[in-house]
Design a binder for these strands. Structure first.
Lengths: 224, 224
DNA sequence: CTCCATATTTAGTTAAGCCTAAATATTTAT
DNA sequence: ATAAATATTTAGGCTTAACTAAATATGGAG
């Protein structure tokens, strides 16, 4: 079962894992949107993955799916590949942080365990990828995540950027230009209703900046 | 046309290139043997590749195929990927020389031009892979090759190992153990008829060794 | 000029992965 | 309780990308 995993299957498992960690359970339409396929296609794939031996996910009709231990293991394996690769590309090959995601998305399905082990070693068993997301350990554990989206913060609160979503290169360039990168402190100055814009102070910068929710929902903050 | 290249197509072009450089023309059965598919499959693929726009190869029925400039360009591109990757895996990630081939065979189809450029830079625009084979330059040129198989050498002749075939890990371990690696000098002591065994002296070693043609045909020597 | 090795054609097969559209079912929120 | 939102089924199809086995054809060596 570990050998006949197609790229598509790995992508499904990764997507389910991602949704699962924030919503507890992954729905068909949610998955369809994330994977950019139709809901019917998702139902089809889901049924297949629920009937492998061992099953990679538990499927309750109309109620979404949850990964089994086996499915989660594979998802975490791919996630480890992905995040190690991102850091490797950034740190060792000098990729800019907005370009690593795309390349890692291709390589993650292809590299061997030896490759994984060797880049992990070259990087000194790192904890976080260039966007601040934790890298699953070799035994596929992740630290508990207590960060909250920047969009949920209220005026007066402060925190430190823990991570940012890595999938949109343009957003990453935007964030970098404004100093909104992991480890930087932020201070919420005001929240404007209706449009949910936040005015915040970033790091040591003088000028506060105003960010819409398309941005603030993609940035995750650890409380001080 | 450069985008819809499958792994299989790239492997065909690589195989054709390889056969072409030694035999001038690649025959259907030769290709079938090298790629481990049936001749019928080869004919099918060949017809497809002859009818792309632009054509990747010239196909004369019953007479074998030759790559067009476009096909050769792609073959060399993949070959460059392969050999750069081999060196990269060996030099930067510490792979042993017998393990690089397999991993490079997977990665060569997947890496981007940026990845290629960055490892080339990290390696200082290298000329040769770990097995001594030349790496096509960025504009896809290869130096003329004047090496001859060790198996063709006569007693009394001397030379320097230029390269060894990279596809058999066991052979590579065997060769390494005997010091038969690129840059090492060899001196042919005797040739025994019927079995074509060669007795040779390797590098600074005292003890001569005896090698069968399964080995000597895989080692290529540059004349001094 | 005929035979043999080589190559080609023919006629499927397999597999993955996706799609639509219409009908149906289920859950949840008002 | 019913509508709206969500999910599933059904049924059929499409495309790409390979593969194989068996029958047939070709060309070159002698």
């Amino acid at each position: 079962m570990r050998e006949n995993l197609t790229h598509a299957i790995e992508d499904y498992l990764k997507a389910i894992y991602e949704i699962q960690t924030t919503h507890g359970k992954a729905g068909t339409n949610q998955l369809a949107a994330l994977l950019e396929v139709t809901p019917a296609s998702v139902t089809g794939m889901i049924k297949k993955l629920a009937n492998t031996e061992p099953p990679l996910l538990v499927y309750e009709k109309h109620r979404g799916v949850t990964l089994t231990a086996e499915g989660e293991e594979i998802a975490l394996e791919i996630l480890r590949h992905h995040r190690l690769l991102e850091l490797f590309l950034h740190q060792i090959l000098g990729y800019s942080w907005d370009k690593v995601h795309e390349e890692a998305d291709m390589l993650e399905h292809v590299i061997s365990e030896e490759f994984e082990a060797r880049i992990a070693e070259a990087l000194g068993d790192p904890q976080r990828d260039p966007h601040g997301s934790p890298i699953p350990t070799i035994d596929l554990k992740l630290p508990p995540d207590s960060s909250r989206p920047l969009s949920s913060m209220k005026p007066g609160e402060t925190g430190t950027v823990e991570s940012v979503r890595d999938n949109d290169p343009d957003l990453l360039c935007f964030l970098e230009a404004r100093g909104l990168v992991p480890q930087v402190d932020v201070h919420i100055l005001q929240h404007s209703p209706f449009d949910d814009n936040l005015t915040i102070q970033v790091g040591g910068r003088e000028e506060p900046i105003v960010l819409g929710s398309r941005v603030t929902s993609q940035v995750f903050i650890a409380q001080n």
